[in-house]
Nucleic acid binder design. Structure first.
Length: 429
DNA sequence: TCTGGGGTCCTAGGACCC
DNA sequence: TCTGGGGTCCTAGGACCC
């Protein structure tokens, strides 16, 4: 049986989540901003048509926003994560061979569907997701992941396709013609650096050119990754479906502040908050870790202000997932990096050397008390339980502070319709 | 005034060992 | 006129993704 993949990609996902709960937003230009209301991370087709770019700083769009009454939202991650979960659960009803690739995309193995039914199958996926979640999706069907990526890109530019495109029955000539219309930079796995190098060295400008390139030369001058992309464009599947999410090897929590921060006390609060969050993520994936790094930076865009950036890491004696153990080290690190007289803009925490909690128990020795570690684990489990049940930060560590005036701005966040009872949608008749 | 926050994998080169 | 060679492990940096 031939391989067949479906890539299901939510259209303008964050904007669509906002629209799903606010009918007044339909057919209007909508923007969603990054943390701190910094730059554009999602835009509706109407906003795109007005010339607003992905990643553009929000302050640059101010005039357009006013002129065209664009609806602007701060990121509402609780809402998007929950909506994503609903979409993925819906997709899981179509196949058990599902790879959740990102918050708004999933690959499905659809090899079990007969070639003549594939297009219908894609349409059915699209309609079901729309009915169950109110999120519009595009579906690309092809023999490799890379080609299915291209199919969804084409779908989005091409309204008559009605959201589904099946490349599996294309003849070689038809496929070549399509690939020749795809710019190199739009191929999955080819970023700006590779685009420049490929253009400059071998006149490779389109997906078709890359498909025809000498695979061995590519391997030598670039990497196996690019070689795989070449093969995938030729219809040879080399990037497998990954149905099991792998535990993360590094966990980072980093955020810029709502305003510049100058005092050590506030930096300590921020670093403690990010540390607590990172270790919580660590426990969620049932891991432990023994390395933490902390970094601080001033605002790199403020060219005339004095700049400072530093990062330090330290090992813990053995892997743990006990927040206070990490807090002690993190606070120590931030104190030794802190230099007065700077306006700090961002801080972050990164946890690495991650191992599974199960492995941990097997090879412990030395200054280690199983009983003590067991008590710590019980305490953390209780904290997590309370915060899951009553909402994030119902209980937290004193070092995180209570004012948190440095916190990021989210001036236009919509209600967390699906995850907070107090913010549930009210329908008035 | 205002410019995001996560992740992944690969490769080259150095340290170290025998 | 001359100073081994091969293997492994680790890390930093570079590239990519959403």
């Amino acid at each position: 049986m031939n391989n067949a993949f479906a890539l299901v990609d939510c259209n303008n996902f964050y904007c669509s989540c906002e629209r799903a709960f606010n009918a007044a937003l339909h057919n209007k230009p909508v923007l969603v901003l990054s943390n701190n209301d910094g730059c554009v991370v999602a835009r509706s087709n109407e906003a795109r048509a007005l010339g607003i770019r992905m990643g553009q700083p929000a302050f640059e769009c101010r005039e357009l926003i006013e002129q065209h009454a664009i609806q602007v939202f701060s990121s509402n991650y609780s809402l998007y994560a929950d909506m994503s979960d609903r979409v993925m659960k819906t997709l899981a009803t179509f196949t058990s061979r599902l790879e959740v690739y990102s918050i708004d995309e999933a690959f499905l193995d659809v090899s079990h569907v007969g070639a003549e039914h594939l297009l219908d199958y894609g349409r059915q996926i699209r309609e079901t997701v729309w009915q169950c979640t109110g999120i519009p999706v595009s579906v690309g069907l092809a023999t490799t992941k890379t080609l299915s990526k291209i199919a969804t890109e084409v779908v989005k530019q091409n309204p008559p396709s009605q959201g589904v495109l099946n490349l599996t029955h294309y003849s070689e000539a038809e496929l070549d013609e399509l690939l020749d219309s795809i710019a190199l930079k739009d191929v999955w796995g080819i970023g700006p650096r590779y685009t420049n190098r490929l253009q400059a060295s071998r006149n490779i400008f389109t997906a078709k050119n890359l498909k025809d390139a000498d695979e061995h030369w590519i391997r030598k001058r670039f990497s196996v990754m690019v070689q795989r992309t070449v093969l995938e464009l030729r219809g040879i599947a080399c990037i497998p479906l990954e149905t099991e999410p792998k535990p993360k090897k590094g966990i980072m929590t980093a955020k810029s502040f709502g305003r510049p921060v100058e005092s050590l006390a506030e930096l300590e609060e921020a670093v403690a908050t990010y540390t607590a969050r990172a270790v919580e993520k660590l426990r969620n994936q049932e891991s432990a870790a023994c390395c933490i790094s902390v970094f601080l930076t001033t605002n790199p865009f403020q060219h005339d202000a004095p700049q400072y950036a530093n990062s330090l890491s330290r090992m813990l004696p053995f892997p743990t997932s006990f927040t206070p153990d990490f807090l002690n080290v993190a606070l120590d690190l931030v104190r030794s990096m802190y230099q007065p007289g700077f306006r700090y803009k961002k801080a972050g925490v990164c946890i690495s050397k991650i191992v599974s909690q199960e492995v941990l128990q097997a090879d412990l020795f030395g200054d280690y008390s199983l009983e003590r570690e067991y008590k710590k684990a019980r305490l953390m489990a209780m904290v997590d339980f309370i915060n899951r049940w009553w909402g994030q930060n119902t209980i937290f560590f004193g070092a995180q502070g209570i004012g948190q005036e440095w916190k990021m701005r989210q001036e236009r966040r919509s209600p967390r319709f699906t995850t907070q009872w107090g913010e549930i949608l009210v329908v008035r008749t």
